[in-house]
Simulated scan of single mutants.
Amino acid sequence: MMTLTGKLISIQALKQQALRFWMMLHNSEMVVPQVENFKPEVKRLFGDMRRKVTWEKAFAHFYVQWLMACVGDGDLFFKLMDPERWPDWQKELKFLILEALLAHKDSREMLPNSYRYLRKTNREDLANGFLALARQSRGGAQAAPLLASAGTR
């Protein structure tokens, strides 16, 4: 199976990035992460850990879980969801990241609220990268109503 990141990042480096966000997520929940639980969780959620595509999905998932658990303001949220700010390898995962975000139970509330906040403070341009991503994706149809409720154009 073809991977999204190709040769932009090795499977080992991708595993490290997934682990990094998994650990940050657990730290944010005031839980001491037990590294021995990381691989079983990845296997349970995404399957064959020998495949790079598994680690791409794991990274996207843990990045979004951390983002939703830790980022409470619209400025930072949309900065962290702007693919133009990401390294090249992460840009290749943009649609996986968007899918993981839209699947998150809190996204229906977070997206419109964050965007409304930016509009209220005349900084909606901070959301441009995310909005462009949503428009490009298959999942954009899912994001559109959420953002429309916040008054996006």
Score class of each variant (00 low, 15 high):
C70F: 06
M68Q: 09
R51Q: 14
F77N: 03
G72H: 12
F78E: 03
E56L: 12
E84P: 06
G74K: 04
A60P: 02
P83H: 05
V53L: 13
K52V: 00
D75Q: 15
L67A: 11
H61A: 03
G47R: 09
F78N: 02
T54I: 07
L67T: 12
C70E: 13
V71R: 02
L76Y: 14
W55S: 00
K57T: 05
A60H: 05
P83R: 05
V64N: 03
R51Y: 01
W66R: 01
F77D: 08
D88I: 10
A60N: 05
W89K: 00
W55V: 00
V53E: 13
M81Y: 08
F59E: 01
V64W: 01
G74A: 14
M81G: 08
R51S: 08
W55A: 02
W89L: 07
V64A: 02
F77S: 00
F78A: 06
L76W: 11
E56G: 05
D48F: 07
A69G: 12
M81T: 11
Q65C: 15
E56T: 02
K79A: 14
H61N: 05
A58N: 03
L76S: 15
G74Y: 06
D48E: 10
D75H: 14
T54L: 01
P83T: 05
A58Q: 08
K52I: 04
E56M: 03
A60K: 00
A60R: 01
R85L: 15
W55I: 02
P87A: 05
W86M: 13
R50T: 12
W89C: 08
A69F: 03
A69S: 14
M68Y: 10
W86C: 09
V53G: 11
P87L: 03
M81Q: 04
W55N: 00
D48G: 05
T54C: 10
D88S: 14
W86K: 08
L76G: 14
D88M: 11
M81A: 12
K79Q: 14
L80E: 09
E84M: 11
W55D: 04
D82L: 12
R50N: 12
C70A: 14
M81N: 13
G74S: 07
P87I: 07
M68H: 09
A69V: 04
G74D: 04
L80G: 02
E56N: 09
M49A: 10
V71K: 07
M49P: 01
Y63F: 06
R85W: 10
E56F: 01
T54D: 01
R50S: 15
V71I: 13
V64T: 12
F62D: 00
D73T: 13
A69W: 07
D75F: 09
G74I: 10
C70G: 14
L80Q: 12
E56Q: 10
R50L: 13
P87D: 02
W86R: 04
F59C: 04
V64Q: 06
D48Y: 09
C70M: 12
